[in-house]
Design a protein around this nucleic acid. Structure first.
Length: 268
DNA sequence: CTTTCAGCCTGGGCGC
DNA sequence: TGCGCCCAGGCTGAAA
């Protein structure tokens, strides 16, 4: 599922392919995407491409009047932003195509959870939480943020108003690496545990970005390729298999309507 | 204020 | 072969 490393991968790959090109036309194939105002996007030059939380932001400048706009894309579950050439006949679930002065890019989404909209301001997509890769975050701040909350730590890690960018895969992987039981209350996390969670969050996200993210079934990067980080997953989707450290059977539990995978021996 | 939870959406996999 | 059912999960908005 697109979490921080997958979104970062798409933004990084997309940028050199479309930077400084001009959007000539957008064709919407899915009427659910009414928030995208097609007329206003014509003749806008792509000034930048980057990640903001789990959003991909494309800065646009109108070539006629200089007006700035932001094309914001949230992949949610199955969304893809693709720049590769397409055989249109085989292009299932194509939602929007953007025709450039040179080439094109596409938004494809099987399950239609994805969001794509043209905004005058970034206010509505500005993350409330802190980016885990930001230099503003450290162990002490993370520990302070958890103080007083009764939610379990796994659910807390998914809160985008606290940390931006973690999803179900990395939350399980981080807690396994940090040897913290996912059912523990966030408010009961010790400083040393918070420190371990902080360190492993950074390391896991960075390693996943290096490997172009995780692909379980749907994720593809901007060039239509899968990620590689699934090779390194220790607990996610490994229910019933053995822990690679101690051999104990990996468990699956449900927290907040979401699967959590963990080793009951390593994570006490 | 905090925390919980149904619903959105589709395709794949399973049991019968 | 096909039908019904369950599962995957990021996020919103309403309820508790």
């Amino acid at each position: 599922m697109p979490e921080l490393p997958e979104v970062e991968t798409v933004a990084r790959q997309l940028k050199p392919e479309i930077l400084n090109k001009v959007i000539k036309k957008a064709i919407i194939h899915d009427t659910k995407l009414i928030r995208l105002n097609v007329d206003k996007i014509e003749n806008t030059k792509i000034a930048d491409v980057y990640r903001l939380g789990k959003w991909i932001v494309i800065d646009l400048v109108n070539t006629e009047n200089g007006k700035k706009q932001f094309l914001c894309v949230h992949l949610r579950m199955t969304g893809r932003l693709l720049v590769k050439e397409f055989d249109h006949a085989n292009m299932k679930h194509l939602r929007v195509e953007f025709q450039l002065d040179e080439g094109q890019f596409y938004f494809q989404d099987v399950r239609r959870f994805g969001v794509i909209e043209l905004l005058d301001s970034l206010d509505s997509v500005q993350p409330k939480g802190i980016d885990p890769l930001s230099c503003e975050l450290d162990s002490k701040r993370l520990h302070n943020m958890m103080a007083g909350t009764r939610q379990n730590i796994k659910t807390w890690l998914l809160r985008q108003d606290k940390l931006v960018g973690l999803g179900n895969i990395y939350a399980s992987e981080i807690l396994y690496a940090a040897k913290v039981n996912p059912q523990k209350q966030a408010g009961d996390i010790s400083y040393n545990e918070a420190k371990s969670i902080f360190t492993h969050t950074r390391n896991i996200l960075k390693k996943s970005i290096k490997n172009c993210g995780t692909t379980f079934s749907d994720f593809q990067n901007a060039k239509g390729e899968t990620g590689e980080y699934q090779k390194y997953l220790k607990v996610y989707k490994r229910e019933g298999e053995n822990c690679r450290v101690c051999g104990t059977t990996i468990l699956r539990i449900v927290q907040q309507q979401r699967s959590t995978f963990y080793c009951p021996n390593c994570q006490k």
